[in-house]
Amino acid sequence: MKSYLTTARLKPPGFLILLLIIVASCTTTTVDEFRQGETGIESDESVVVLGRRQASDYETRSEFVECVGKRMARGDGAISIVPERQFIDAMFPWFEPRTAPLRTRDLEQLMVEDVVARKMDEFGIRYIVWLDGVTETRDRAGSLSCAIAPGGGACFGGLTWEDDANFTAMVWDVGSFSTVGTISADATGQSFMPAIVVPIPLIARVEANACQRLADQLKQFVNGS
């Protein structure tokens, strides 16, 4: 009751902005886990998170891969994560878009190469997590007009769009050359950009939410909890 009265006293634009912030923060995230094998990791073992870049029309952004890796490496049950760029450069040319193993059988064949097995051992890699996905923007609507004059500039109007981040993480056990599980995260959210003189972007953080939820789930999964 108290909060309603406080809100009702706000002027219409203020109320509208508050409402938009509340709506914009409403990102829906769904995480699905499919376990195919037992997991667990020792303190001297590590995980590498890699992005899939074989698709012709998109590629998994390295920033998303980095986000998942960093989040898995901190907090309760933190896991030792080898940075993607460091791993790919050290393994060059075996994990490039055209040469990276697509199936666990390919990884088994790859590990026959002494140089690959030795590097993998140096890093202490127990699991490889393959991230595949993209964030798409759809249902764009509205219009925004901006004008610049000698005295200054102003924008009027409003834009809205929906972002959908859909990512899948496949976990490979390097010890047994098998897929031990698949976790998918789907986050959707509506973004707004109202403009009354100054445009105010109210962005739904779908990719950040997908990263957070996916990383937390992966951390639990790898730890076997």
Partner: peptide, 13 residues
């Protein structure tokens, strides 16, 4: 740069 890395990987392998 990605294309050059692709060249290096396919050439060397």
């Amino acid at each position: 740069v990605v294309a050059l890395r692709d060249l290096a990987s396919s050439f060397s392998l």
